[in-house]
Design a protein around this nucleic acid. Structure first.
Lengths: 210, 210
DNA sequence: CGATCAGTTTATCAATCGATAAATAACGGA
DNA sequence: TCCGTTATTTATCGATTGATAAACTGATCG
């Protein structure tokens, strides 16, 4: 009992936006093997129309990546982590609460995993960025908070990076459980706080630069 | 320049074993959309022969699950975690070193993720088992080691479970990074030790039952 | 009100998929 | 050595896939 859906002839910009928005949801659900006919059906259009806006299916997939991963990165995070007017614990709480709100979504988590499994290099590129823009900063601030020598005197160790990876994994895995394993995960903020507490209590023993 | 590969007519048992063994590798690489013709090619047989041993493709996929997940569970783990003749830290190290050696493999990690993304209920079933057979045990032993009331007096809290989830995630994510994101991850045992140290130093603050 | 541009649909192709039936050939027993 | 069982291959079907070309139609302008 829905409208006959006879609405046609949208402006190209609007139509493209609609396609991309629906494609994000669609590929997040079925992966990149999701069929163009089914996507078109959800959009209330015919399948060949997709090819008016994107030359190939891969081009549409590529566009979905950009929309989900690149667009959602917040440059302010890097400032926040270095804002020494606040205690480090407070900064980390603020950062990971906000960061988790961005990446712990159905689309982000699943598309990221689909991308990794398909062997696309996007994951490594994103994670290299994450390490440079976030992990190194956190280690730097942790060193400072515990009166260790800075990274330019004593280089960052593998184990320091791994310690931060552990924190990051604990938080990201909440999204894996929720959106990939389909398990109930509630009160994410409280859990983020918990993981941070455990991390901050336990990490001093692994910091270098004494 | 390889042998003409004219060998035919294996015994049904042997042929089935070969098919399953190769199918595990194959589906771990390409996911369940991997094509039967390509799988047959890798086996050096023709595609219809697969249907002599498995009625449908799904039946073969189902068999792969059983082979990888059910067969590799070690009941001894549950005994080990409760062996109070050893310090808890030692038990956890021993367990997670062995457990990580079993699940942090190309096949296990990728098939588990493919399964989750496809919406099969196997993940939840496995993780329910993991929680009952491992998580609850760990929390019980942690309570005991820190002189808290046992779970039958003070029920296990959500946050205690989440704390163990965090440890588990940190370790499992090593496999995600290595086999899904294709990142270099070395010295897994050392990292497991590190995560355990951080966990054990930080977790007492979240234990209930005081 | 008619003409033109462009957004959209219809019709269809070529390749690929899982699956089936019939033909072939390898191995063991008499 | 021959024969029969059956493991294996050849040939093929029907459905589905991404993609293309041509026909259609709605909106804007004169």
């Amino acid at each position: 009992m829905k409208t006959p859906e006879a609405r046609r002839r949208l402006s190209p910009d609007l139509r493209e936006q609609e396609i991309v928005r629906e494609a994000v949801k669609f590929f997040a659900e079925f992966g990149f093997e999701g069929q163009t006919r089914e996507l078109a059906k959800r959009l209330g259009i015919t399948q060949p129309l997709l090819y008016r806006y994107f030359p190939t299916k891969d081009a549409l997939v590529e566009r979905v990546y950009q929309e989900v991963f690149l667009r959602r990165w917040n440059p302010f995070w890097e400032e926040l982590l270095q804002d020494r007017s606040k205690p480090l614990g407070e900064r980390l709480t603020e950062f990971y609460r906000d960061y988790s709100q961005v990446i712990l979504t159905y689309e982000w988590v699943r598309l990221f995993m689909f991308s990794g499994l398909k062997g696309l290099d996007f994951n490594t590129r994103y994670l290299d960025l994450l390490r440079q823009r976030v992990f190194d900063l956190i280690i730097n601030e942790l060193r400072l908070a515990h009166s260790r020598k800075p990274p330019d005197e004593v280089p960052i160790t593998t184990m320091e990076i791994e310690a931060v990876w552990g924190l990051h994994a604990a938080i990201f895995y909440l999204g894996v459980r929720k959106f990939i394993y389909n398990m109930p995960v509630e009160n994410i903020n409280s859990i983020v706080d918990l993981e941070l507490r455990i991390f901050l209590d336990g990490v001093p023993g692994t910091l270098a630069g004494r």
